[in-house]
Amino acid sequence: MKIIVIGKSGQLAWELAQLSTPEHEIVCFGRDDVNLEDVTALTNMLHLHNAAGVINASAYTAVDKAESDVENAFMLNAKAVGNLAQACKALAVPLVHVSTDFVFHGDKGSPYLPSDKINPLGVYGASKAQGEQLIADIYPERSAIIRTSWVYSTHGNNFVKTMLNLMASKPELGVISDQIGSPTYAKGLAETCIACLNNQVIGIHHYTDSGVASWFDLAVAIQNFGLELGLLDKRIAIKPITTAQYPTPAKRPHYSVMDKASLANALPEISLTHWQEQLKAMLTALKVEREAQLAFIN
């Protein structure tokens, strides 16, 4: 069984590549490898590689930049997604597409259901919402849309690694405390995407690690585990600040916790782990990677 991943350099694509086995080969294609604007090229690529399933891990994720780069955001997050759905439909290949909590406004105050009305605040969320709609219109019979949030990994750029770097170099930090969501280790998300293909899951579902946090809560946990694991050598002050104190080009949902019951029903074998446990697992893996790099250099 060969699974084709659209996306090559991102966190999720990297974690998916680590799951490749001789029995379940996972091959990643970046934007330089295939033209996402050409349905025929996509279809030919999937046919050539005898794809048994496709996971779309490619996205325009620069939330603030998207506000001024609207055309490119919609091209990658909407048009390319529709093209991929057409290619998969032509070959009857199941598709798993990863979406985002940013399709929601953030004013509900309780966990969002997959069926709740979407109302994105900015270009990024709107482009991802359009991508979801194109899949639902084109290929609902063999596609799954998995919404996730606050994704991090040992690979690539993300909040966790940025915080570690800032904590090592700054005397104090101010971190937003009035945006509430659920952090997600990309490794668990990757495993869930594979399980969705294997179990022929369809429809819209939500996946994050369990539990709820603010960015401030996450930063505090990063520091605590970082000190415990020896990734940090000193404690600094972390102060809660409001969204208003840290203005950005794009508005973000204040509350984007998502209900994961439908996915738990579709995949009984998937057990959700609390975000703090997953964070410690990622930081432990990061420590091992860094130690291996140092040993190689020396």
Rank of each mutant, 00 (worst) to 15 (best):
A168V: 14
L197Y: 02
V175E: 03
V96C: 09
D259S: 13
H105C: 09
Q86D: 14
N224M: 12
E15V: 05
S68T: 15
A73V: 08
S149M: 02
T243Y: 08
K161H: 08
G131W: 01
T43C: 09
I138Y: 01
D101K: 00
M75R: 15
A66K: 14
K89L: 15
L95M: 07
G230S: 03
T192N: 05
L227S: 00
K89D: 15
N265D: 13
L166W: 06
I222V: 15
N165A: 15
V220H: 02
I26Y: 06
S210T: 14
Y60C: 01
T21W: 08
Q179C: 09
V5Q: 01
I202G: 06
I297H: 14
P111T: 10
A57T: 12
H47L: 13
L91M: 10
L84V: 06
Y60T: 00
Q179N: 13
L164F: 08
Q130W: 10
P120C: 05
H254E: 14
M282P: 00
R142F: 01
V288K: 15
K287H: 11
D107K: 06
M163Y: 05
F29N: 00
V5A: 00
T21Q: 10
G230W: 02
A292K: 14
T61M: 11
S9R: 15
E15D: 06
M75S: 15
K187T: 12
N35F: 06
W215E: 10
S127V: 09
P183V: 04
A264P: 03
T21M: 09
A168R: 12
D116T: 09
A62M: 12
A57M: 12
I26T: 11
L283N: 01
P111R: 09
N119C: 10
G7Y: 01
P94Y: 01
E141G: 05
E191C: 12
V5Y: 00
T242Y: 09
K117S: 15
Q179L: 10
F296W: 13
I135N: 00
I297M: 11
V103Y: 02
G122M: 09
C196P: 01
L283K: 04
T154C: 13
S143N: 04
S214P: 10
L91R: 08
G131E: 02
